[in-house]
Amino acid sequence: MFKNLMAFWKGKDFLTEVLEEFKEMLDDTKYMFESVCRGLIEGKADPCLKDKTYEIDKKVNLIEKKIRKRIVEHLSIQPTIDVPASLVLMSVVKDAERVGDYCKNMFEIIGLLEKPLKKELFKELFDNIDKEIMDEFEMTQKAFIESDEEVAREILYLERRVVRKCDEIVRTLAKSNLPTNEAVCLALLARYFKRIAAHLTNIGSSVILPISDLDFFDERLRNEKG
């Protein structure tokens, strides 16, 4: 009992603990994205991919709930400390959870495809977007955990590029003569890539945006350009 109490007493403080958990969420979703992409694009599907994907998604959801609970506890005990950080975290955990959901949706495309994806076609259409999103995962983690404003700004531009490419893919697919099944699956994939990039940008841009502007990074980008 005394050992337990001492262990509790020596625990980490709120922000350290929550940031560690949030980093775990980002690591998990990155792993999900990487494995699903490998299975989908390169056809190197792990036989346990389905179980792994759903299991990690469940874990990500649990961490989201845990972080939210922890924030409410913290604000009830110390209502004046870490309010902005708590509000930002409350918002970005939702984004990380959504990334997990989209990775799961990407996995479901494997089941929808009648034939495996043609590598050349994918390469031609998507032009390494998956790799750019992988870079965005890394950058998001660095920007958010280390509060790196430079990296946060780079994320904004990277996201723009991904969005433009994804929109272009959908336009190309709409005009193409590809079989319906393949066209729908590729269009969905482009859509999910775009959403994942946007959610990661929500997380990364929270470093430079005021709390009231969270999720509206595109307006910021327009203003900076304008």
Partner: peptide, 13 residues
């Protein structure tokens, strides 16, 4: 003690 209480609280309840 509030900071410590915050840490302990989450682990005990």
């Amino acid at each position: 003690v509030i900071k410590r209480a915050d840490i302990v609280f989450d682990k005990v309840i």
